[in-house]
């Protein structure tokens, strides 16, 4: 069955190539750039465009694993709390005299551990859905962060730590460089490797792929651990940008991330969507927000614009999916008969 799903990838035609959602996002990006440079004289210059990425890329690291998770029909809403907890642990350890490098490693470990715990619960108790588990851990992880730091803030990091959030590599923000490198890595991981194909297989038909020998549990563990790890990376950048941290940081990041992934064309109804789409969506939302910010649009208008953009774009994606749906349904029925 898994081989059949893999062969689901259609043959290449130019028409199909240009009908991809990613082109739509690129078009959207071009439109946003055009409008932004028309409405604000401050948008179209190198510093603005690169510095803007510093403001929205921190949470974008979580987008990578979230794409995989949502392709597998799961979700992780604990990532914001995971980021908060890892940030707090890092700052607390450093303030307790641990060298900064070790504190950063601890931050990554805590993040990965939080993610692993989510994955472990999901694998151990298969009938639990990811919404339940991550909703509970969302409260729990942030709760632990409050227990550790109470009403204090922690910070006073060494000067070099601010490089993460504020530094440049030859004129390009460090965060942008790392994001691009990781984006290439994750695109390759999802689109070109066996693990990636298996993630799609699980998303298309979890039961069938389990029967056909895909190690669903291992993949789930891996992906959720990655989500925790990326949340920790987000925590490092966020903490570096703030220079200090509190238990209430990264609040509601999960919803922003899910919005980016959804705009990226990832539909959770069955293993559809590409990493590249989500990466583009990060920039679409980021620059849209930045542009509207440059003309000082009130916060409530921004909310409405982003909400409508999300719904409209997903509606479009959805029409693409539903057109292909009968085909898939037929396959599903077939699969049922086989099993």
């Amino acid at each position: 069955m898994s081989t059949r799903i893999v062969s689901n990838i259609q043959k290449f035609t130019w028409k199909r190539f240009f009908l991809q959602w990613e082109w739509m996002l690129i078009a959207l990006l071009v439109i946003i750039f055009t409008i932004n440079s028309n409405i604000s004289p401050y948008f179209l210059n190198y510093t603005s465009i690169t510095d803007a990425t510093m403001t929205f890329l921190d949470k974008a690291f979580i987008v990578f694993p979230m794409v995989m998770i949502m392709i597998m029909r799961e979700i992780d809403i604990s990532v914001g709390s995971t980021a908060a907890l890892s940030s707090i642990v890092m700052a607390t350890l450093y303030n307790a005299g641990v060298p900064m490098v070790i504190a950063i490693v601890a931050c990554l470990l805590v993040g990965a551990l939080c993610g692993f715990f989510n994955g472990y619960l999901l694998v151990k108790y298969r009938e639990l859905s990811a919404v339940i588990v991550t909703l509970s851990t969302m409260i729990l992880y942030r709760g632990i962060a409050y227990m550790i730091l109470e009403d204090r803030s922690a910070g006073d990091f060494p000067d070099w730590f601010s490089y993460f959030g504020w530094g440049y590599v030859g004129g390009i923000p460090f965060i942008l460089c790392l994001f691009v490198v990781l984006a290439i890595g994750f695109v390759l991981l999802l689109q070109k490797t066996t693990i990636g194909r298996r993630i799609y297989a699980v998303g298309s038909n979890p039961k069938a792929s389990r029967f056909s020998g895909v190690k669903v549990d291992k993949i789930k563990l891996l992906v959720f651990t990655l989500a925790g790890l990326m949340a920790a990376i987000t925590a490092i950048f966020l903490t570096s940008r703030m220079g200090s941290t509190r238990p209430n940081v990264a609040n509601m990041y999960e919803l922003d991330v899910i919005a980016m992934v959804a705009l990226g064309g990832i539909s959770t109804v069955g293993g559809k969507g590409k990493m590249l789409g989500a990466v583009l969506a990060v920039f679409v939302i980021g620059y849209l927000q930045f542009g509207l910010g440059l003309i000082n649009i009130p916060a409530q208008m921004l909310l409405i614009v982003i909400g409508i953009l999300l719904i409209v774009s997903v509606t479009v994606t959805n029409f693409r999916v539903t057109r292909k749906a009968p085909q898939r349904k037929a396959k599903k029925n077939q699969a049922k008969k086989v099993s």
């Binding site: 899910i258 959804a262 539909s267 109804v269 409405i304 909400g307 999300l310 997903v314 959805n318």
Partner: peptide
């Protein structure tokens, strides 16, 4: 309507509307 006729996933449709309704409240 968004969930039944348009067929958007409830979590995403309601996330979008959450933003829109909240914005409208301030407005």
């Amino acid at each position: 309507l968004l969930v039944s006729k348009v067929g958007i996933l409830p979590i995403i449709a309601s996330l979008g509307l959450m933003n829109a309704f909240r914005g409208m409240t301030y407005w």
